[in-house]
Design a protein around this nucleic acid. Structure first.
Length: 870
DNA sequence: ACCGCCGGGTGCC
DNA sequence: ACCGCCGGGTGCC
């Protein structure tokens, strides 16, 4: 037999036996009791409203009890329930069972109800006709002194729910840009990470002790809670915007940053690189009046640690695969259904923490601290001015992204919102602690941070509200030696965890013993633990992630902004290509819109990819396919702007069963997204660009040589070789002008035409062509051009072997003369570096004979590094 | 429940 | 295949 107690209203009705006789006389009594309870002030005994929580009633189909919209329901503990000793039964006002509180929530409520921490009321706001589940709004009432105990109980019991990553949160009004769904998710998650104070991963409460299930360590004191996390989204998903939204939305306990609004349309951002003249009194004027100190009594105040923070958000670009690509298995329990619970739970926590909880005021006349009815919530949170220290968010980032932060602040903060932003940079930076801590945002760089170390540094002595580490991978252990990428990643991770002060892994020894060594030793459990750990504190989405069944970003963005300069090396190639073209002749520069970064529509993207492809193809250049290592055949370009032979990349896509990735940058690639060069444009390309002919230094150098040599010996024949067929076209003009007879051989010609041209050139008859304009990669092996004894290489190739081959076409059996090769290299240009690289390659081939081909795989990227002198 | 979750059937391209 | 993927069975506490 169940004996249950209504925990409703006043104590008079606290003991009602629901189950002895549910359908008889008691019904009347019970409903009367409930009505009486509802009409009565529940706080006659001094109870206050702790907060609201939205829950779910499940199992409706098993019971007959019905509820009307807006009706109250009874919540009855069922400690004897054979399925769950935490069960909380839901009954309508007649005492008929409606269903049960969903299991996870019931666990929390059972604790609260059994410990008598609060009385719980339930109202069903909607969905009363639902077949399976219905929502229920729960409110918690209790004695002021129980508030903290209740909060702790919920924090721990909701540990699992809290980490739900599926909830969304709207940004504060001050954020002018609407957030995308995945950004709202990130905001929700970041707020939760900051506001909640659940136990860190692997910690649980066992009786009076706190126990770590990994280290088997137990402590009387609660382990320090970690209030930050790692937002490890892919590039281009809006980490900066989301972080700005966080700064404005979650000033404290889920409340937005109190910001001053001004009428005029002045720039909201006052990023002051120059220190303010005048005294600290002048500095004080920067503090807006409504900038009340937060209630930070429950925030840990730690002194003397390198980075002194209460709340930390880390932003890294890509967490390493070893940690983020966890086995699906570990994903077993994803409480997505609980998302609304979590959101409500946030409000609940805010209500618990807030001294003048607005929800409370609505229903109750609040006793004690009297808040005037016209007083706004913002003005009611003003606290002592010495708490100002926790107002400021410190953003640390590489120098190169400072402008991005400032720009995004400008762009996304409403223009009528006055946000104090200070750029803590440059020798004249204002080091006043009072000034800095009066700012809303202080931005600085890692270099300034390390230069500013020591006691005098304000960066280290201010109690920041939160610290944001942008490009977190920059934070590295300075003692770290070169090691494998995986080991480095695990080390990086340790740095981040230590920064977050995740006990006990902030102590290196524990980290090594429990995580690092097992993981590097290939221990499965170790890896599992690492994954669990990272998953607890990390939110990571890729561009292929989906929100509500839709991809995070539309296609064009996917190809854009993918990675660093070297990773997106097609851009570098394109630039180098232009430099090389410019060395030959200014008109070679294809007139392209070319900036891949600005493509807005798939159509535009395609246009730009074709432009890029045009650059690469610009005549038989020796660009090679990274798959087959030969020059590209049937070239296609991926959305990440890398060029391959179509058959090669098709094979890659077919071989990788799941999502195929670009061999160069690991972006996801799809067969139907490969862009090829449209045939018509190929022709059109040829005809354009011949308005006015002009010369170039290489043209003049070549003509000078030819004219001089013609005087010396008119019987010599010449090969003029370039990678750029358009350059060959340009050369035709002065050759004709000076009466040279020439032929041309390039890759576009049919086999028949080639044979004809070669025969013409090889002929020793009088009037036969003296010059062949030859595209570097034209023609196959076996091309016999022994008639030529002088080769002009107009532009250097990446691979010396390509040039070698070309020279060999005339330097072969049948050649009677000494072959002379002339290379034209523009001084102080990219070409000089290319020649250097060619020499190094030659050396390499000579030293490591046979292994040259294996080396070639990575060589192009290394070439670029060398060219850039990286 | 127009879901999520589970476990069985199944398996190149 | 000690997988992934598919589709059917299923569903509170």
């Amino acid at each position: 037999m169940f004996s249950s107690r209504w925990r409703f209203g006043s104590d008079r009705y606290s003991e009602v036996n629901l189950f002895t006789d549910p359908y008889e006389a008691n019904v009347e009594t019970l409903s009367q009791a409930i009505r009486a309870a509802a009409s009565e002030e529940p706080d006659v005994d001094g109870s206050v409203l702790f907060g609201h929580l939205k829950g779910t009633v499940v199992g409706l189909r098993y019971y007959t009890g019905v509820v009307n919209q807006g009706e109250m329901v009874g919540l009855v503990r069922q400690p004897e329930n054979p399925y769950d000793r935490n069960a909380v039964m839901v009954a309508n006002i007649y005492g008929n069972q409606v269903g049960h509180i969903k299991r996870e929530l019931a666990a929390a409520m059972a604790h609260v109800m059994d410990k008598n921490l609060a009385k719980v009321e339930g109202v069903v706001p909607s969905g009363t006709k639902n077949q399976f589940t219905m929502p229920v709004m729960l409110s918690f009432w209790g004695k002021e002194e129980n508030k903290n105990a209740l909060k702790n109980a919920f924090d721990n019991l909701f540990d699992g729910l809290m980490e739900s990553k599926d909830g969304e949160k709207e940004a504060a009004e001050a954020v002018g840009t609407p957030l995308l769904p995945h950004q709202k998710q990130a905001l929700s998650w970041m707020c939760a990470r900051e506001n909640k104070s659940a136990l860190p991963p692997f910690w649980e409460k066992r009786g009076e002790l706190y126990y770590n299930s990994l280290t088997c360590f137990s402590a009387k004191e609660m382990p320090e809670r970690i209030r930050g996390g790692i937002l490890a989204d892919d590039m281009g998903l809006g980490k900066t915007l989301t972080t700005l939204a966080l700064i404005l939305t979650n000033f404290h306990n889920g409340k937005p940053l109190p910001v001053e609004k001004c009428e005029e349309h002045s720039s909201p951002i006052k990023a002051k690189t120059k220190p303010q003249e005048g005294s600290s009194a002048g500095d004080k004027a920067e503090v807006s009046q409504s900038a009340a100190g937060p209630q930070c009594s429950n925030l840990p105040q730690v002194e003397g640690i390198c980075v002194n923070t209460t709340e930390v958000v880390e932003i890294v670009d890509k967490s390493d695969n070893s940690t983020s690509k966890g086995k699906k298995k570990a994903n077993k329990r994803k409480p997505s259904k609980e998302a609304p619970v979590m959101l409500e739970d946030l409000d609940f926590a805010a209500a618990l923490g807030g001294s003048a909880a607005d929800t409370g005021l609505k229903k109750k006349k609040k006793t004690g601290k009297k808040a005037g009815p016209t007083q706004s919530v913002e003005s009611s949170v003003i606290e002592s001015p010495d708490e100002l220290s926790a107002r400021t968010t410190l953003i640390i980032c590489p120098l190169s992204v400072i402008s991005n932060w400032l720009h995004q602040l400008e762009q996304h903060v409403r223009s009528n919102v006055k946000l104090n932003v200070y750029l803590y940079y440059g020798s004249e930076r204002n080091r006043s602690k009072a000034f800095l801590s009066s700012q809303d945002v202080v931005i600085t760089t890692y270099n300034v941070l390390s230069a500013d170390s020591g006691n005098k540094s304000p960066l280290h002595s201010i109690n920041w509200l939160r610290v944001v580490l942008d490009e977190g991978h920059v934070v590295r252990n300075p003692n770290a030696q070169m090691s494998t990428p995986i080991q480095n990643s695990v080390k990086d991770l340790w740095m981040l965890l230590a920064f977050l002060r995740l006990k006990p892994f902030d102590v290196r020894e524990w980290w090594n013993r429990v995580i690092q060594r097992p993981v590097t030793g290939g221990d499965r459990a170790g890896l599992q633990n690492l994954q669990t750990l990272v998953k607890c504190i990390t939110l990571r989405r890729t561009k292929s992630s989906e929100v509500n069944g839709r991809p995070l970003v539309s296609l064009p963005e996917k190809a854009v902004s993918e990675g660093t300069v070297l990773r997106n090396y097609a851009d570098v190639l394109a630039i180098l290509m232009r430099l090389r073209q410019h060395c030959c002749h200014p008109d070679l520069l294809a007139k392209t819109s070319s900036d891949l970064g600005a493509a807005a529509t798939p159509g535009e993207l395609r246009e730009r990819l074709i432009d890029k492809l045009r650059l690469v193809l610009a005549s038989g250049s020796d660009e090679e396919c990274s798959v087959c290592l030969e020059s590209v055949h049937l070239p296609v370009i991926t959305h990440c702007a890398h060029v391959y032979c179509r058959p090669c990349i098709a094979q890659v896509i077919n071989t990788e069963q799941e999502a195929a990735r670009c061999p160069l940058c690991r972006s996801e690639i799809k067969a139907n997204e490969l862009v090829e060069f449209p045939q018509e444009e190929m022709e059109e390309e040829k005809s354009t660009n011949s308005d006015k002919w002009r010369t170039s230094s290489k043209v003049q150098a070549l003509m000078g040589n030819l004219l001089r040599l013609r005087c010396e010996d008119s019987s010599i024949k010449y090969l003029v070789v370039s990678q750029f067929t358009r350059f060959l076209s340009i050369l035709e003009t002065p050759l004709r002008e000076h009466g040279f007879s020439f032929v041309r051989l390039d890759g576009t010609m049919s086999q028949k035409k080639r044979t004809q041209v070669i025969q013409e050139f090889q002929s020793s008859a009088a009037g036969s062509p003296a010059i062949m304009l030859l595209s570097l990669k034209a023609g196959g092996v076996g091309l016999n051009l022994t008639a030529a004894s002088h080769v002009f290489l107009m532009d250097p190739a990446w691979n010396p072997a390509t040039e070698e081959q070309c020279i060999d076409r005339c330097h072969r059996l049948g050649q009677t003369r000494k072959v002379i090769v002339t290379k034209f290299i523009v001084k102080d240009s990219v070409e000089e570096n290319m020649v250097k690289i060619q020499r190094q390659k030659q050396d390499l081939v000579e030293k490591a004979f046979g292994s040259a081909n294996a080396e070639r795989k990575t060589s192009r990227i290394d070439d670029i590094k060398a060219l850039m002198e990286l």
